[in-house]
Design a protein around this nucleic acid. Structure first.
Lengths: 195, 195
DNA sequence: CGAATGACAGATTTCAATATCTGTCATTCG
DNA sequence: CGAATGACAGATATTGAAATCTGTCATTCG
């Protein structure tokens, strides 16, 4: 049922997302969210200890959904170089799409990045972990030079940070961005490959 | 003479730098700068058309001075790989040093980056141009694979952006930063080298 | 005559009063 | 008895009036 008699965290999260989209991260209040649900704002605090925790949960869910395609690529069996390229291109495209289609929630995410780094750090570790898996596969396949995969994964992530880092989202428009990404990718690919 | 009877742009820039350092970019006013010089604020407007132009000139001068060592490395004759590494390390170190030693002027620069991109773009073009020169030398020396030097230079600059981009200056502390830079450099070096 | 001044209008910033919000909790509701 | 309420205190945000600043220009100064 969509209109259950008891209030669930998921319902609150969805309502919060709507309110965030409508009012933006600066204006959205817990009272607004409670009003959207037809309950008192005290009830919201039964499920989330603070507004910050609620915002964090919204962002977490939004981020997980935005990145779900990446996990799939990670566990594929094909050639690692192609998979790594596709993984990075997908990450880049997902961030760009979200920034354009859902600017209010993207702004919320950007705010979160600035104030609460632990959630973001965890996410970044998940992402570099996925890169590490693909690089490991590439080494097994004989496509990539054997190296410390963790170090290499961090390097690949940071070298492409300019293209997926939300703080640079303003520079992601235009065809130049894709050209630039290809140029960096080309360099990284040669760097990872066996001699 | 330090206390000439006529007001020169250089005097204004130096006074502006002092005021900026003392009050920070948000509080410093043209009236403050004029007071520091013992003149009316109208006089300042004889030499600079606007406050924005004055701030831009201050940042320009500060940036030029911060990067002067880079131009020297560019025109050296030694092996390109070592020079490129040193060039990048110098850029990284210079940014980091300025951020720590001169936080108020660094904040001014950061403000400028956000609002007036043309000056910054010009600076960035100068820097990528220098990278291109070194890569070109490397190709001549047979150290680097022949490629479009402009494209490769942009790629190198963007792949290392995370380490010299002022908006990420908060992440430049600790030994992790140097390790990460080395890992990215290693990847880029292999990518540039001849097979 | 060129360089500097200071009064001025409009734009921006400050500041304090007011309103709203966050988070708590004793109480009510089912 | 657990879930929801709404009144409350302290923190934060909004607002509008006053102060300050930016940029101009007719005038003065050397």
């Amino acid at each position: 049922m969509t209109t259950d008699s008891t209030l669930t965290p998921e319902q609150i999260l969805t309502a919060a997302e709507d309110v965030l989209r409508r009012y933006g991260p600066a204006k959205a209040t817990v009272v607004d969210i409670a009003r959207a649900l037809g309950v008192s704002h005290g009830s919201v605090y039964r499920h989330f200890p603070s507004k910050a925790a609620l915002r964090e949960a919204v962002t977490q869910r939004w981020l997980d959904q935005a990145h779900e395609a990446l996990a799939a690529i990670t566990v594929e069996r094909g050639p690692a170089p192609e998979r790594l390229h596709r993984w990075l291109a997908t990450l880049f495209a997902a961030k760009r799409r979200k920034a354009l289609e859902d600017p209010e929630l993207f702004a919320t995410y950007l705010t979160l990045v600035g104030e609460l780094s632990s959630t973001v750090d965890a996410h970044l570790e998940t992402l570099t972990g996925q890169i590490a898996v693909i690089i490991q596969d590439g080494i097994h396949q004989g496509e990539f030079r054997p190296t410390h995969v963790g170090t290499a994964a961090r390097a690949v992530f940071q070298a492409t940070a300019h293209f997926h880092d939300p703080v640079h989202s303003a520079e992601w428009s235009g065809p130049r961005a894709d050209q630039d990404f290809d140029a960096v990718w080309s360099l990284l690919l040669h760097g990872l490959r066996t001699a």
